[in-house]
Design a binder for these strands. Structure first.
Length: 854
RNA sequence: GCCGGAGUGGCGGAACUGGCAGACGCUGGGGACUUAAAAUCCCCUGGCCCCGUGGGGCCGUGUGGGUUCGAGCCCCACCUCCGGCACCA
């Protein structure tokens, strides 16, 4: 072959992409005899075209997929599209309202999918495209509907009226997880409103305990992700205590029930607080002289939206209802307030307030001049309620607590709770912060909820044989509101499945997080028309051995997917209760951006900041029918994506770094094409009796095998590449000076194999040019030979008093006496030991010797 | 405020389990090739200092202390940055 200056990526990369596809090299399930490995990456939203974030994520997964295949695994590495959601629908609305055109989200989305698919293929990612799916297709979403109906049968899905989060911008309700700081997760400027509506919920709280406890078994998950889930689930042990209502009037409940995690402070209760939305708030004040005042307060707080009420400044505001409750432990009468800081959704919507030992209660008591009663004294200190400036929340000794005086409060928690239970005043219980999952969305571009509302029978599930309930096409995006409401064909002929009478179809669609909660099951059997997937396939392939994705999905997506996996098991469809054995959270692609205030920082690439680099600059767009060829090609881009940072931290884009990667690709190309003859020698094994450069080079080759193999196994792509570059440098030098051409050829082959997962096109092409008929990806991964790694001489570091003073070369395995003798003789060491007495010698064989002298 | 994670050259980052700090890359500098440039290749590149140009010394992994023969790594305190949660009773 003639020497060539530059790697002709625009020809060679597509050549191998075609060949791999033709040979079905990436098809999963081809080797049932091999150990399975399910490698999953979070599927993309098809937003027009591939961006740099995709390039990085899939470069990571693909390198791993190719490595694992070469290591003898039957790898399932699928790809699909999370294709429902607001962007496509908003594009349709914009087209209709601003441009007066009609744009149907379905063909629009399919166009985006085609474009991004072409981009991904042009990167040479080894996905098994025979399993491709898109969640917006009826063949997929009908199974969302089936799963929903089965959940409905089992009471895991239910419709109920609740105060729900409404985003005026999205024109739909949101799940709790989708509200951050009172703002919509997609619109950080938009306040979320509370509305009382009838909506569909999935009872994820039924699984709270299991979702929490099984986190402990997920050894392959990053601790911080597990921690975020634990915090979100928010389990706390406590006690429900009933406080009798004083001066009870007809129609009023006998008790006010509260939840507390601190029964040790029960004797310190000086007031009660009820949430303003609590139905009792109005009722208790009715007929009292305070009624008007209370009503105006409650109305004012209710009118405040969530973000104001829970804002950082969090000024506590409340009002006495003019009523009292009785502390069941000591018979004290305590006033009842309504206040903004008590949440209706948590616990019972009502609390006991212990200002001495709870900071919030303390602040409130100070403001409204409620007495403070100390019931826990810190060790060696006496608290004076009048002098306190903050609550004492730490443990201490019980005081003013009747029979419990003198007891450590840590014990008091248990003992007083026991006492409450024995006296029939309440019971021990567990509370979770986790709420049920609100899945209704008042939008078009999602899975229709398969329910029919009948005036007589109520909401009735659509029979499974009538599924899928398809999205209609006669929809109008030019007007506000859910387009499903105005579609004629959608409602046409709707009849109650139970009584047969004319009825109305549910027009809510499902939260798109439903789609991504089980897509990894569907990949196993994407064409199955009879059920969501074959259980035998689930048995073989699940759990996902390695899941890779962004940490931004640490709570929502991962929690929902874990929930669905358990539900799917309980529906009898599958057996594995945890979906993802190992989780890896990759970092973002960032680029320098100068902000308005003049500061420059490296921040996530985003369209809105304009600090983006389009990957198509590098891979071209000819595959999309365009005319540009691409600057550097896919392999150079992949190399850069993996070489500059560890994959779990952010990657800073740099044009210079990209040039460096491209230079390396060309350099490798040049080296191989210029020395084709010398490198094509086929003699493989049996490099004995090597000497000098040959021996050293052989050792470097095997050290590289060992190092690179270990690095791939722990996502150390950046260090694997560093070792690959080192090996390449050694290879260049050995080609110049080494005695054995067979050994150079061997080293060259190893280099190609080790780097193939990262630069697959380049390596497969060069592999072929070295005379191999089969793809490099069918060769087994090399093993490092321990005897090749052995050295007969080692450099031992010599220290005097822990400071480096010299190095000596000794035979490997030399004992302390031998090394000591050589070390003492070394010039600089001798100088430093002069006039000193050696008191101790620390010796680490083959590494270091330290003279402790004075 | 609480809970996590991280601070290493001009920059991105290496350093297994406490044993040569700065692998690999980028930037910068010098040189070779060339009429010249590009491309390519080679050498140098943490700071300060000493002499004989080969070496030698001191300092150096956010700050202050500690443990150890020896600390980027372990312990204590503090500072800064990033991420998450935030009235959850």
């Amino acid at each position: 072959m003639p020497p060539e200056q530059f790697f002709p990526h625009a020809e060679i990369e597509p050549k191998w992409q075609r060949r791999w596809e033709d040979e079905g090299l990436h098809r999963a399930g081809a080797h049932p005899d091999r150990p399975k490995f399910y490698l999953l990456e979070m599927f993309p939203y098809p937003s027009g075209h591939m961006h740099m974030g995709h390039v990085r994520n899939y470069s990571i997964g693909d390198a791993l997929a190719r490595f694992l295949r070469m290591r003898g695994h039957d790898v399932l590495y699928p790809m699909g599209f999370d294709a429902f959601g607001l962007p496509a629908e908003n594009a349709a609305i914009k087209a209709a309202k601003e441009e007066g055109k009609s744009l149907n989200p379905a063909p629009f989305t399919e166009g985006c999918i085609a474009s991004i698919t072409a981009d991904l293929k042009r990167m040479g990612f080894s996905h098994d495209w025979t399993r491709e799916l898109a969640t917006c297709r009826p063949e997929y979403y009908r199974w969302n509907q089936v799963i929903f109906l089965r959940m409905l049968e089992r009471g895991l899905a239910e419709r109920r009226s609740a105060a729900v989060n409404w985003c005026p911008e999205c024109q739909t309700v949101l799940a709790n997880e989708q509200v951050h700081d009172g703002k919509c997760w997609r619109h950080t400027e938009t306040d979320v409103e509370l509305r009382q509506l009838d909506q569909w919920f999935l009872k994820i709280t039924d699984y709270a305990e299991e979702l929490l406890s099984e986190l402990d078994s997920l050894d392959g998950w990053p601790e911080h992700v597990k921690l975020m889930q634990r915090n979100w689930i928010g389990k706390s042990h406590g006690t429900l205590v009933r406080f009798p209502l004083a001066d009870r009037r007809p129609g009023e409940p006998e008790h006010i029930e509260i939840f507390t995690t601190r029964p040790d402070t029960l004797f310190g209760v000086t007031f009660m607080v009820i949430a303003p939305e609590h139905p009792l708030a109005h009722r208790l004040a009715r007929g009292t002289e305070r009624e008007a005042e209370v009503r105006s307060f409650l109305n004012r707080v209710a009118a405040q939206d969530r973000s104001v009420r829970t804002a950082e400044d969090r000024e506590k505001e409340g009002i006495a209802l003019g009523r009292e409750a009785i502390n069941p432990l000591n018979g004290d009468r305590v006033p009842i307030f309504a206040a903004n800081f008590v949440l209706m959704e948590y616990g019972t919507g009502c609390i006991m307030a212990v200002p001495a030992h709870d900071q919030r209660d303390f602040e409130f008591a100070k403001k409204y001049d409620v007495p403070i009663r100390v019931v826990i004294q810190p060790e060696g200190e006496t608290l004076d309620p009048a002098a306190m400036t903050c609550a004492h929340v730490d443990p201490g000794v019980q005081v003013n607590s009747g029979a419990f005086d003198g007891m450590p409060s840590t014990e008091g928690i248990e003992r007083i709770a026991d006492h409450v239970v024995e006296q029939g005043l309440g019971k021990k219980t567990v509370q979770f912060k986790l709420r049920d999952w609100l899945i209704s969305r008042q939008r078009y571009w999602g899975t229709p909820i398969p329910v029919i509302h009948c005036d007589d029978c109520g909401p009735v599930g659509v029979p499974e044989h009538q599924l899928p309930v398809r999205l209609p096409e006669d929809v109008d995006f030019a007007h506000d509101g859910n387009p499903l409401e105005s579609s004629r064909s959608f409602q046409e002929g709707a009849a109650c499945p139970r009584c047969g009478r004319a009825a109305r179809r549910e027009t809510d669609t499902m939260d798109t997080f439903i789609d991504s909660s089980w897509y990894f099951h569907r990949y196993l059997d994407p064409g199955n028309a009879g059920r969501p997937f074959d259980p035998a396939l689930e048995e073989r392939w699940l759990p996902v051995d390695q899941y890779i994705g962004g940490v931004e999905h640490a709570i929502m997506h991962l929690l929902y997917a874990r929930f669905f996996t358990k539900v799917i098991c309980d529906l009898g469809l599958a057996t594995h209760r945890e979906p993802f054995k190992r989780l890896f959270t990759q970092g973002m692609v960032c680029m320098e951006h100068t902000f308005a205030d003049g500061t420059t920082r490296s921040v996530k690439m985003s369209k809105s900041l304009g600090n983006t680099v389009d990957p198509r600059i590098h891979i071209g767009n000819r595959h999309l029918g365009g005319s540009t060829e691409g600057k550097t090609g896919a392999d150079a881009l992949r190399l850069f994506m993996l070489s500059d940072s560890p994959p779990d931290s952010q990657l800073d884009w740099s044009d210079e770094g990209m040039d460096g990667a491209s230079r390396f690709v060309h350099r490798v190309w040049r080296f191989f094409t210029q020395r084709a003859d010398r490198l094509s020698g086929r003699s493989g094994a049996g490099f004995e009796n090597l000497t000098g450069d040959d021996l050293n080079f052989h050792r470097e080759v095997h050290a590289a095998i060992q190092g690179v193999t270990q690095d791939y196994g722990r996502f150390g792509f950046n260090t694997a590449i560093a070792k690959g570059r080192q090996l390449f440098r050694a290879l260049e030098m050995h080609a110049e000076r080494g005695a054995s051409a067979a050994l150079t050829a061997h080293g060259a082959r190893i280099f190609l194999v080790l780097m193939a997962p990262i630069m697959p096109h380049l390596c497969d092409e060069l592999w072929e040019r070295l005379g191999h008929a089969e793809s490099i990806f069918t060769t087994p991964w090399p093993e490092a030979d321990p005897s090749a790694l052995a050295v007969d001489e080692v450099t031992v570091v010599v220290q005097v008093l822990g400071k480096l003073r010299g190095r000596v070369t000794v035979p490997a395995g030399s004992d302390q006496a031998a090394v000591e003798a050589v070390a003492r003789a070394e010039g600089n060491v001798a100088k430093h030991l002069e006039g000193k007495t050696v008191r101790k010698v620390v010796f680490v064989p083959d590494k270091m010797i330290n003279f402790v002298a004075s």
